[in-house]
Design a protein around this nucleic acid. Sequence first.
DNA 1: TCAAAAGTGTTCGGTTTACACCCATGA
DNA 2: TCATGGGTGTAAACCGAACACTTTTGA
Lengths: 254, 254
Amino acid sequence: MPTSIKIKDTSITPNISVDCVIFGFDFSELKVLLIEREEGDFENAPEVPGMLALPGDHITTIEDLDEGAARVLKELTGLEKIFLEQFKAFGNPNRMNSESDKKWMKFIRAEPNVRVITVAYYSLVKLGQYEPQAASFARHASWIPVSEIPVLAFDHNQIVNDALKSLRLKLRHEPVGFELLPKKFTLSQLQRLYEIIIGTEFEKRNFRRKILKNNLLIALDEKQTGVPHKAARLYQFDRDRYEKAKEESYGFEI
Amino acid sequence: MPTSIKIKDTSITPNISVDCVIFGFDFSELKVLLIEREEGDFENAPEVPGMLALPGDHITTIEDLDEGAARVLKELTGLEKIFLEQFKAFGNPNRMNSESDKKWMKFIRAEPNVRVITVAYYSLVKLGQYEPQAASFARHASWIPVSEIPVLAFDHNQIVNDALKSLRLKLRHEPVGFELLPKKFTLSQLQRLYEIIIGTEFEKRNFRRKILKNNLLIALDEKQTGVPHKAARLYQFDRDRYEKAKEESYGFEI
DNA sequence: TCAAAAGTGTTCGGTTTACACCCATGA
DNA sequence: TCATGGGTGTAAACCGAACACTTTTGA
């Protein structure tokens, strides 16, 4: 079977991409996984500034948008079956027209002026599980606290901002915070997560009552270890119960 | 200036489209504006079944997604500055692969197999204002109650369903219902709107209290006319006040 | 024994719910 | 005068907010 131009043409959709805003939480900050624009492309172009960007890729002609986003996530982090949600498509005709973006496009693309729209996803990963594999990144990648995000490539700052908005909204209406915590966690950790992402403080007793009233947590017979104070009880998210409850009615608010 | 092929090539983005789910409310039902696939294309193809579809179009290379959606809306209804919100992108690789879709594509497109993803919007229009212009439709278009939507072209049934979900969510958290009502309306009309769209019943007194407590309605010194019972007071949505309140905090719930 | 976070109950005020009757209008 | 929806008050249950102290642990 000869590799015809046809195959190459139909394997990539040149003006549609997906980008992933991958959130991680380390108990003190919310972070986003950012990659450097491929270094290889800079070898002959030292004048192109190194710049951080969201992990993303063009979709192939045979995959759905969700599949493309899952593939990007897998290729970059090795993770599968991770919370992943489409939140918005971005198509400003000038979204790749800054000077540095144009320079960079010249090195990576045959047709640097093609119009690209991107469908953006956000993803939630448990940092604890994941950090040991950091060396497996295909490219230089790093977790950057959302409060310290520099100027990114293309319109990626806007995409991150919109992702944050969507995440905050989601967090108030659906129990997705657990995706960012280890399987077993304390109520204080959960509370900190909400406080940091939403940016507001909750009163401890009321927060606990409210969370527990939802009946979506399993109290374990286990406690924290290695803390210099009273060890807190560990809890686990009851996903089965949530799936069942969801069928009947909307069952979660914070 | 010669009309070169270049101009034609760059004027349309062949694998990106926008589709609009245009909702209207006539005080008894929620309706969606659907068009027939252009009749002209059927002249030489009587075997292609007439089918309803969402109004949509490919975007040009110089317009943003939102602009493309606004253009489609304008071209179809003549309306501008109408509530319009992007809610999801659809990119299933088989979304145009049903037999009838493929037949139809052959008549309208040079390259019928190109992969197209679509960015979907929903729009809210005041039927009262609009109906007089019905004759100005560029193509056969009709308001179909959401409960009576037939099988549509492509994946448009799914798009309509997702639009409905988004609308219902939006309606509970932001005062967008007013976009579907005439400038002046009664509280009962507003209540019916919520009941019909969300699909639940509200208790009259409590509904009124709740709505009025938001302080976003202006009670007019005007009443309904021509009704065979006590005339109801008319209200008007206070958009300025809402915009101001929005800056401070989220200010609406139903 | 100290520091640091865990864990818990109660009061108060506001909100939600459920409920029934009189009113104005045009037919 | 009747049918139709407009319009209102109140009591009870419930929920959210605010608040302080005792407990456990490791250092």
